[in-house]
């Protein structure tokens, strides 16, 4: 019976999730500003945006910046995003946008391969695609790919974490799931950079499927096996939350240093109260602005940069108040 339960429940959950997304899209102020009606200027061009996780401040910051840039250029703009980081949740959104034939599509695909057919179909119908943040393996998709240089970000995280650990002990990466281009690149950069420290041993990467409870259990189990654990590199916010709880349960908070990506409001709080020690902030606003700029250039028939990498910065408790650093903190709403 349990075997018949799970697929049905997934489908139903998907349906419910999609419905929730649609309902939220109607109410959320940030995401539905550009009305689909005739937009002024730029020949009434329209850009649609689909983010990876709708409620993630990283994507909210990106969406806000893109929206402002589109408005400034007189381009119509609509945005939506998956309720969860899941191919089966994002695909219906892509298909519905495809049916609307926008001039440009900004998308953060949640898988490196599974969404390629849908995107190719949209591209074939004349929509210009800009891949933002994440990308797909097939290089024929998209006129431009804009993301943080994630491998570099992994290196930045490794160096900052190694410094916090005093350059000795074991270190582990706990990430969301394999097969996501950005996190895979971060882990690669992190592991390669960590290998340069002779006193630090890199343990095999664990994946928690975005479940904080799993991350909490994994970090505590790792502590049992490796009492010299000195550092953790957490893949995302949920993972970071789980790792923090796991360390607190084990009484190791602050002893084991935690580095995480992004600079969301609650992560900043965690940094201030000592739950996290290193944040590697991306620049989502720059990604959003440049994607709109590149799409506008493509509409005008101007040359487009095929690949853009944006900068990253390590935030610690010490440099948090520096205005040059503080501008990287993400926003929870426009």
């Amino acid at each position: 019976m349990s075997s018949t339960t799970s697929p049905t429940s997934r489908k139903r959950a998907l349906l419910a999730a999609t419905t929730a997304v649609l309902a939220l899209a109607a109410t959320a102020s940030c995401s539905s500003s550009g009305s689909p009606g005739p937009a002024a200027g730029a020949g009434g061009k329209k850009i649609a945006m689909i983010t990876g996780v709708k409620s993630d401040p990283f994507y909210i910051t990106m969406t806000c910046a893109a929206q402002a840039e589109a408005k400034a250029k007189g381009i119509g703009f609509t945005a939506d995003g998956s309720a969860q980081w899941d191919v089966s949740v994002q695909r219906p959104l892509i298909d519905s946008v495809g049916a609307a034939h926008p001039d440009g599509l900004m998308i953060s695909p949640v898988d490196t391969a599974a969404l390629t057919p849908s995107l190719k179909q949209i591209q074939a119908s004349g929509t210009k695609i800009a891949l933002v943040d994440t990308s797909v393996t097939d290089t024929s998709v998209g006129i431009t790919r804009i993301s943080s240089d994630n491998e570099k970000g992994g290196q930045v995280a490794a160096d900052a974490l190694a410094k916090q650990m005093g350059e000795k002990g074991s270190v582990i990466v706990i990430s969301v799931k394999p097969g996501i281009s950005t996190t895979d690149a971060r882990i690669k950069g992190f592991s390669e950079e960590m290998a340069k420290y002779p006193g630090i041993k890199v343990l095999p990467t664990l994946y928690d499927n975005d479940l904080p409870a799993t991350a909490a259990s994994q970090i505590q189990s790792t502590l049992a096996a490796h009492p010299d654990l000195g550092g953790v590199f957490a893949g995302n916010t949920n993972t970071g939350q789980g790792v923090a709880t796991g360390l607190a349960q084990a009484g190791k908070q602050g002893v084991v240093k935690v580095a995480a990506f992004d600079a969301e409001p609650d992560e900043i709080t965690a940094l201030k109260n000592g739950t996290l020690q290193v944040l590697v902030a991306q620049d989502p606003a720059a990604i959003g602005v440049q994607a709109v700029d590149e799409l506008a250039a493509a509409f005008a028939g101007k040359p487009v940069q095929a690949s853009i990498g944006t900068t990253m910065v390590a935030i610690t408790k010490d440099n948090l108040n520096d205005p040059q650093i503080a501008k990287y903190v993400y926003k929870a709403a426009c």
Binding site: S2, T5, S6, S9, A13, V53, S55, A83, Q84, N209, D210, L211, P212, A213, A216, N238, Q241, G242, T245, Q249, D266
Partner: peptide, 15 residues
């Protein structure tokens, strides 16, 4: 224990 509601973190509790 987690200090947050973890809205997206309970999709597989039932299974």
């Amino acid at each position: 224990s987690y200090g947050t509601t973890s809205i997206a973190g309970h999709s597989t509790d039932n299974l």
